[in-house]
Design a protein around this nucleic acid. Structure first.
Length: 373
RNA sequence: UGGGGUGUCGCCAAGCGGUAAGGCACGGGACUUUGACUCCCGCAUCCGUAGGUUCGACUCCUGCCACCCCAG
């Protein structure tokens, strides 16, 4: 009779979310196989390999639930398909979002293939997102707990991938997830949420990147072309960034903070500005490759809402398709929209898809006094 | 070395006899499966230095030092 149960492969990270996903699947009578992915081989800043602890938790939770657990290693795939892109983007002066790609390439490709190889009916994860599987296809919906919604990271998935996905905790609030874990006596019930790049973890960003990309220090200049300070390498900064510039207390200044408003890759200059000025905002953006979960855009031109970074509130926009890409016009100017980051589109609670931002249409173009363009 | 001015946290800057504002930077934390933004907390027992006056001085006086400006 065990054979009657549908087999589900669950990606377990050792956190509460996937622990509760396991609990729910088990309660629903599935034949659950917990699989821990180890996709990064290095120790963290403190020289600690947290994956050991995480795997311990996977073991404890699995044992408590009476489900088998395994481990797989996609470190090579991760490096080849996600990390290399991550580095290339930084080298080009952009600010990539490796975790969106990680879902497309690792969790729902390499790992999904692995799960299918085990004859699983579906691949489940502890993402906060909901799926609506209808006859025509699967729709990706925001999580019930909007403060934890992770559809932003799943926006690049295809129908084929979502058809085989399951997000058991998408209908729960984080509080409920912890309560369920607590009630079931799972050791991860009070474990702190993990942050940082997926599989790599929380790092001192500058030190981490330094290990992979050569640093080229240069000048920081303001809109007058005046040298305000030195930067450690353009890739260490992102648009709209304030901390880490080390600029403070200029006699002629306004006393406000300084922000990164641009990069001149040619001259290796970081362009900074004091205060929240118009140069920090944009009216629209262009994306060369946008993917839609439904397989195609809802129309050649349509209105919807969008997020330009994870955890940002939705903004009203209009999307106009141009082949595989699109241009997006914002109803209101948006702050620090950054190339490399993903723009993710929504129609109400439905995540339509998204793609990496390639360029922006500034509210006020950056013009450095005394320089051509 | 004739005259004038200034020396307070890494930077900018309040204070003008009553026992060191604020901003920026920086550090820590919160938030967060990117990188940011944001928010919270911290951050000069000491005011160029040595004395003096005073119950009490960063604030008054004197010497010295440093820097700046104007002079020739």
């Amino acid at each position: 009779m065990k054979d009657d149960k549908a087999r589900i492969v669950l990606g377990m990270s050792g956190g509460v979310d996937s622990s509760v996903a396991a609990l729910l699947l088990k309660e629903q009578g599935y034949d659950v196989l917990a699989v821990y992915m180890k996709n990064w081989e290095e120790e963290d800043d403190e020289g600690v390999c947290t994956s050991t602890e995480d795997y311990e938790d996977v073991r404890r939770v699995s044992d408590a639930l009476g489900i088998p657990y395994y481990t797989v290693n996609f470190a090579r795939e991760y490096r080849e398909r996600v990390f290399s892109y991550f580095l290339e983007e930084y080298e080009a002066g952009r600010t990539p979002n490796p975790d969106v790609l990680c879902n497309c390439e690792i969790k729902f490709r390499a790992f999904l293939d692995f799960a299918m190889g085990l004859e699983a009916a579906a691949l489940a994860t502890g993402h906060y997102a909901r799926l609506e599987k209808q006859g025509e296809g699967a729709r990706l919906l925001r999580a019930v707990d909007l403060t934890k919604d992770q559809t932003y990271f799943l926006a690049g998935l295809t129908q084929a991938q979502l058809q085989r996905a399951m997000f058991p905790i998408g209908g729960l609030y984080k509080k409920e997830v912890r309560r369920l874990a607590e009630a079931a006596g799972l050791t991860t019930a009070r474990k702190k949420d993990s942050t940082g790049i997926c599989f790599i973890g929380e790092r001192n960003f500058k030190r981490f990147l330094m290990q992979y990309l050569p640093a080229q220090p240069g000048d920081m200049i303001d809109l007058n072309g005046k040298v305000i300070g030195r930067h450690d390498g353009l890739m260490y900064y992102t648009l709209g960034q304030r901390r880490g510039l080390g600029i403070g207390g200029r006699a002629e200044g306004s006393g406000e903070s300084w922000f990164v408003i641009g990069k001149d890759m040619e001259r290796n200059l970081l362009i900074v500005q004091q205060g929240e000025q118009e140069e920090l905002y944009s009216l629209g953006l262009g994306a060369e490759k946008v993917s839609f979960i439904a397989g195609q855009p809802p129309a050649a031109s349509f209105a919807c809402t969008a997020k330009f970074r994870y955890r940002q509130s939705d903004q009203a926009v209009r999307v106009t398709m141009h082949g595989a890409g699109c241009t997006i016009d914002f109803d209101r100017p948006q702050r620090a929209v950054t190339p490399g980051q993903w723009v993710v589109l929504y129609d109400g609670d439905v995540c339509l898809g998204g793609g990496p931002i390639d360029e922006t249409r500034p509210l006020k173009p950056i013009r450095i006094a005394g320089r051509a363009q």
